[in-house]
Design a protein around this nucleic acid. Structure first.
Lengths: 220, 220
DNA sequence: CATGTTAGGTGACAAAGTCACTGAAGAGGT
DNA sequence: ACCTCTTCAGTGACTTTGTCACCTAACATG
């Protein structure tokens, strides 16, 4: 696969051709199937991932069985948490799981170090990635600490739906998105249903009044 | 102040003499008094801070008046959130406030870029700083999303106390540490008092049974 | 000592998390 | 088609946390 994959990489600091060519020399391309764990407590990586295609969900779980989505890594982004992971000796319970089939560029640490040293564009790309994640996490903290469940759930439903109107998701999955319990999601959803904003069937939710959801999502 | 201040800077990548000398050329040293805002929504910095002495508290506040401490920047550390701040156009509501009198080294962005480019030790220092903060935030998310109030408060009391046994803090200040409401702190503290773990007086809390607090802090 | 300000207490209620249990929907085999 | 197993969702009771309104206590100042 000698494609021009670095064109995929976005951000203020898209990688110019010179850097891309160098990357191709040192990088390895891997495929992961849906559901595969990219990294986790029992699986500390020694390389850096740059996502060419697919999506990775990064989450944190409690020892009481609850879970929360921290952010998603999309095509063109890198997963800097693995870097932090490598540097920090501490054990912590974040994990990344491939949400779709994934094609990623894997850069061994020495190669990463060299590129960071020698290529300004690459360095900017990496700094950008760090900053983006920091800000993602600030948003999560804000949400969890100060947000209301109904608002957060409405937001998430809209985000997961995108352009379509039906979402394939169980209550448990939504609870894991938001870091809450299934029962709580069930309660809020049945409220949404009463107010005719959604319709439910086993494992799917239809957003029948997106407008109302949007109003709710941007309130409180 | 031509002191050897870079000796203060810690981490896996302590800065060697060569880098320190270069830093001194380009850096400006500033003093801030206790309570001064280092950065904030209305005060987006265009420079990077390296803390020589003192402590900065970085917090996030909701629009409903609640607040949570994200982490503290101690002597020898840098505040990378300002970097993220600069890169991200988004407005967000994190702010840094000097908790003590502060002496900091200020590096204008161009100088920062140059150093990052040319000095490996400096680059490592910065990457380390980013990683540390990411992990700090993971911890905050974990706490807020899954932690119990009594445990979190016990932890915080012990952390704030350090070696001594009395803490000068109001219930409101503790609430702002944990991202909760004053009434909640009052309730939990009065419970601690009933269980004879602490003693209270206006604006101060005495930890009279640290052992019990420690047990509580490492449970659930 | 009078007065204003800030810290802390209280009770009632709402929102969210926990627990134990129930029934319903679908998948797979026969 | 029917039975069975598993997963998903609904429910009620209860606990914890957050919110609101209001009150009292402690200190600071003139």
């Amino acid at each position: 696969m000698t494609l021009d994959w670095t064109e995929r990489f976005q951000g203020t600091a898209a990688l110019p051709r010179a850097v891309r060519d160098r990357l191709i020399d040192v990088a390895r391309i891997i495929h992961l199937e849906e559901g595969a764990q990219v990294f986790g407590p029992a699986n500390v990586p020694d390389s850096l991932f740059f996502l060419y295609d697919g999506r990775i969900r990064v989450s944190q779980s409690s020892d009481t069985g609850r879970e929360i989505t921290l952010y998603r890594v999309d095509a063109g982004e890198s997963c800097v948490l693995t870097t932090a992971c490598m540097l920090a000796e501490e054990a912590y319970n974040a994990e990344g799981v491939a949400e779709t089939e994934v094609t990623a560029v894997v850069l061994p640490k020495p190669a990463f170090d060299r590129l960071v040293t020698e290529e300004e564009a690459f360095r900017k790309f990496v700094f950008n990635a760090y900053s983006k994640r920091l800000i993602d996490l600030l948003r999560v903290v804000d949400d969890v600490a100060f947000g209301h469940m109904d608002v957060r759930l409405a937001e998430r439903l809209l985000a997961l739906a995108g352009d379509v109107k039906e979402i394939p998701a169980t209550h448990q999955q939504l609870a894991s998105e938001l870091g809450t319990a299934r029962e709580v999601v069930s309660r809020v959803l049945s409220d949404f249903q009463k107010r005719e904003m959604i319709a439910q069937s086993r494992g799917r939710i239809a957003l029948i009044d997106k407008k109302a959801l949007k109003i709710l999502a941007s309130s409180k």
